[in-house]
Design a protein around this nucleic acid. Structure first.
Length: 275
DNA sequence: CGTAGACCCTGCGCGC
DNA sequence: TGCGCGCAGGGTCTAC
């Protein structure tokens, strides 16, 4: 479900947890991409939480003095705040209760498909977690530049769409924004990454940054069920030009948007103006 | 080595 | 109405 803009939107909505104390945790289902270690998670009780962070599509909840927990939403995960004790719905698998000045809020993790994860550690910097070892640069950070993408793509024969979705190349770009960035840069998703010129990579690099920033400013993209931490949908769907629009006319050249499959995932593009 | 494909899991919309 | 199929915003492991 969520790519970088959606995860970042959720992170921002959770900033008011900063400084609150973790009072309780309940794990109703522990079988996820990784099995939840409830003992370690409960070892965090009584600690104050720092401002929520993000690395790639992971949300980081560090506790003061080290340690904390990490949440990934997979395809179908949602993370949101409810008044403590609000009725449970299907697949509400984990709850955290935070308290500040006598007021308690519940953070709830719902994930029907269970492709997500919750991991925790008692000590150290969450950023040094092994989950992050092989990750590439943040697309909105200094490490992501035209020079980098051009150099990193040399020699690669795979389709550029797959490169954009490879977390070792750059993190946070998923199926929606890969198609959208390529549409904006007018580059065919099937083009071999290593054969794209520096000029065109420069355009694509700018398109990735631009589309992610705009999506964040619209609160992300809601196709079906994405919601922010406070339950609001994202409005960037109105600004998608390719994704989920096969058969519709391209807003730029009026050709028909096509859907193809690459590495098992749908890709949408305009054969008329993406080369 | 790089890459494609299977797989993890549940739910939804569609055609029959 | 009911059923089977394909598809879904992610990431990892295996086999070539």
């Amino acid at each position: 479900m969520p790519e970088l803009p959606e995860v970042e939107t959720i992170r921002r909505g959770l900033e008011r947890l900063e400084g609150a104390t973790l009072r309780d945790v309940e794990v109703r289902e522990r079988r996820f991409r990784l099995r939840i270690d409830e003992v370690v998670l409960r070892g965090l009780l009584g600690r104050r939480i720092e401002r929520p962070g993000r690395r790639a599509k992971y949300l980081l909840f560090a506790t003061e003095g080290g340690g904390g927990f990490i949440v990934h939403l997979g395809m179908s995960g949602r993370l949101f705040m409810v008044p403590a004790g609000a009725p449970l719905q299907a697949h509400d698998h984990v709850s955290w209760w935070f308290e500040r000045d006598g007021e308690v809020v519940e953070l709830r993790f719902r994930d029907p498909r269970r492709f997500g994860l919750v991991v925790s550690r008692l000590h150290g910097d969450l950023h040094s977690h092994p989950l992050f070892e092989a990750l590439g640069p943040e697309p909105l950070g200094d490490g992501f530049s035209t020079a980098y993408v051009f150099a990193a793509s040399r020699g690669s024969r795979r389709p550029v769409k797959n490169t954009l979705m490879d977390a070792r190349f750059v993190v946070g770009v998923g199926n929606i924004y890969a198609s959208e960035a390529l549409w904006r840069a007018r580059i065919n998703p099937k083009a071999q990454a290593g054969r794209i010129s520096r000029t065109r990579w420069s355009r694509l690099h700018a398109a990735v940054v631009d589309v992610l920033q705009h999506a964040i400013s619209e609160g992300g993209t809601t196709l079906r069920d994405f919601r922010s931490a406070s339950g609001d949908p994202g409005y960037f769907r109105n600004q998608l030009h390719a994704y989920d629009r096969d058969g519709e006319r391209c807003s730029r050249c009026a050709s028909s948007i096509r859907r193809i499959v690459q590495a098992g995932r749908s890709t949408y593009y305009c054969p008329g103006c993406q080369h």
